[in-house]
């Protein structure tokens, strides 16, 4: 069985995640089995009903972990997800994450024995409510984290934001210079770039080689690494991964944003923000390698 991409839709409550989800289903569900996972808690399953009745969703898994969706509750999610894909595997899964869940922790569980090789972290979108972006200062750190790991940031409700729009756009670009940023209303975005995101081998001639089953790997650590050793580490693993991205705590209080694919990678220095190193790789990594440990061997 080929492994299934699990895409993440992040965003704070009310930012337009469900609308986005339906737009996605409208665009891609013809002829494709797209399963939906919803982890929303405050609307008492209302969103679930909307999506369930939307013709596009192939199957639905609702996980209700309440408002405290922390790392200690991920254990049972592993089993529900494994059971969910067991009998009628979908072509892809799209997960509407709770506004305050931690996407990187979700990625980590794909390394568990029951999910390894079956599901990998696919694309990730962060939906930003342009109108309220500057009003939810207390939780800005969470929001920034979601933006930081996103492939595409959708700045939604841009018409309502008026003059604030520019400052939101600048802020988003500063938080994640690599993300594709789309300003929109009703979460309607152009999905072209999504298909382009998983270029496999950059050299055209290599494209015909058999595509191995994809997996995603999360590297999460609090150790510091030098820029030089980070380069060495990436050199040593990058051919096992088709994409690699995240942020790294480097020596000398430096924060680096890393982004790369098979052929090359870049890292850019960022303003400091609190939090450890978090890297996500997608590819065909070696069976028994513990990448966090491997990464740590390059740390000082």
């Amino acid at each position: 069985m080929a492994s299934i991409p699990l895409h993440l839709v992040n965003g704070f409550l009310g930012s337009g995640k469900t609308t986005f989800l339906m737009h996605y289903l409208d665009t891609f569900s013809r002829g494709r089995k797209i399963a939906v996972i919803q982890n929303e808690f405050s609307t008492s399953g209302i969103d679930g009903d909307i999506v369930r009745h939307h013709c596009g969703a192939y199957r639905m898994l609702e996980i209700n972990n309440g408002s405290v969706f922390c790392v200690c509750l991920l254990g049972s999610f592993i089993d529900s997800l494994a059971a969910f894909i067991q009998d009628n595997p979908p072509d892809e899964i799209i997960m509407e994450a709770s506004g305050i869940s931690d996407p990187i922790s979700i990625g980590q569980i794909f390394q568990s024995p029951v999910l390894k090789g079956k599901v990998y972290l696919g694309y990730s979108w962060a939906i930003v409510d342009a109108k309220n972006f500057n009003r939810i200062i207390p939780i800005r750190a969470r929001l920034e984290h979601q933006i930081r790991i996103a492939d595409t940031v959708v700045i939604n409700k841009s018409e309502l934001a008026g003059e604030e729009m520019n400052s939101v756009l600048l802020a988003v670009k500063k938080i994640n210079p690599f993300a594709n940023v789309q300003c929109t209303n009703f979460a309607k975005i152009d999905f072209e770039e999504k298909k382009m995101s998983l270029r496999f081998y950059p050299a055209n001639d290599c494209r015909n080689s058999q595509r191995p089953d994809l997996q995603s790997v999360v590297i999460k650590t609090n150790r510091l690494i030098s820029r030089e050793n980070l380069g060495r580490f990436i050199e040593s693993i990058k051919d096992e991964f088709i994409r690699f991205k995240g942020f790294v705590n480097a020596e000398g209080n430096k924060k680096l944003i890393v982004q790369g694919s098979f052929a090359d990678y870049t890292f850019e220095e960022m303003d400091w923000f609190t939090g450890g190193t978090e890297l996500v790789g997608i590819g065909s990594p070696g069976g028994k390698v513990d990448y966090t440990r491997k990464f740590e061997t390059y740390c000082d």
Binding site: F41, S42, S44, G45, N64, N65, G66, S67, V68, L73, G75, S76, D79
Partner: peptide, 29 residues
């Protein structure tokens, strides 16, 4: 179990087999 007080105060909770219960409603809102 971080739902004990919430349950008494009127939050609806949903039980699951492997996790502490989850709060699914918020009376003050």
């Amino acid at each position: 179990d971080l739902q004990i007080e919430a349950e008494i105060l009127g939050c609806k909770i949903v039980w699951s087999k492997e996790n502490p219960p989850a709060v699914v409603s918020h009376p003050l809102s």
